[in-house]
């Protein structure tokens, strides 16, 4: 369970209880957009916004909602914020909105948002709930940005669309970089995420070796519910 102090909560959500590599939540909707840094950034910012504000909303009304109705209430609140994001993106970034397409709508079923509501906002006051949603979003953002940097750099030789590795051109001999075809395919996202999970677990388990199996059952139950 997450800590209720602000600093402890930040540490939890960014590292010791990171939504992606420890809880294995919310990887559904966004791995697909990680082959491009711009899309990934927009997508993760949207998720941070939705998680933070839905958390604070559910926390404000947590005593008014009957237990039986809480799932549907949560879903409606999330959809409400996602629609706001969708309309904002459509108005200000139409190009990116077109690229992200269905994946903006899929924030609704992103397990992290619902997971944080269920696990945290349901039982805590608004301010810390907002913070919890915000930091969970950041934990998610950090991992996805790492994946996106690797995929875009090796897949296209660019970062944020700016050429970093000039691609080799056999006609005039300019450039030297051959793009890695696999980084563009979905498969690479799975491999990279697995690598990150491995690295994170290896780092975490250095002091206490027996800690590894503990998060697995929790991930299964939370993932099942959300």
């Amino acid at each position: 369970m997450s800590s209720t102090s602000f600093l402890g909560n930040l540490k939890d959500n960014l590292w010791t209880n990171n939504p992606i590599f420890i809880q294995i939540l919310g990887i559904c909707s966004t791995l697909a957009v990680t082959n491009n840094l711009i899309n990934t950034s927009i997508m993760t910012v949207a998720l941070v916004f939705v998680t933070a504000f839905s958390n604070v909303t559910i926390s404000l009304i947590r005593e008014l909602v009957p237990r039986k109705l809480r799932m549907i209430t949560q879903t409606v609140i999330i959809s409400f914020y996602v629609i706001i994001v969708d309309i904002l993106l459509r108005a200000y970034f139409p190009e990116i909105h077109k690229n992200l397409a269905a994946y903006v709508g899929l924030i609704i079923t992103n397990c992290i948002v619902m997971g944080r509501m269920e696990a945290f906002a349901q039982a805590n006051p608004p301010l810390i709930s907002f913070w919890d949603g915000f930091t969970s979003g950041l934990g998610y953002m950090a991992v996805l940005l790492v994946i996106a940097v690797i995929r875009e750099l090796l897949g296209f030789g660019t970062l944020f669309g700016v050429t970093v590795f000039p691609i080799y051109n056999p006609v005039d001999g300019s450039g030297w970089f051959t793009p890695w075809g696999i980084m563009v395919t979905p498969a690479s996202a799975f491999f990279l995420l697995a690598g990150i999970i491995w690295a994170a677990k290896a780092l975490m388990n250095r002091p206490v070796a027996a800690k590894a199996p503990a998060p697995a059952p929790q991930a299964a139950t939370v993932g099942g519910k959300a």
Partner: peptide, 9 residues
């Protein structure tokens, strides 16, 4: 490898 067990693999 231990770190890769479960979700990793």
């Amino acid at each position: 490898p231990q770190g890769l067990q479960g979700p990793g693999i």
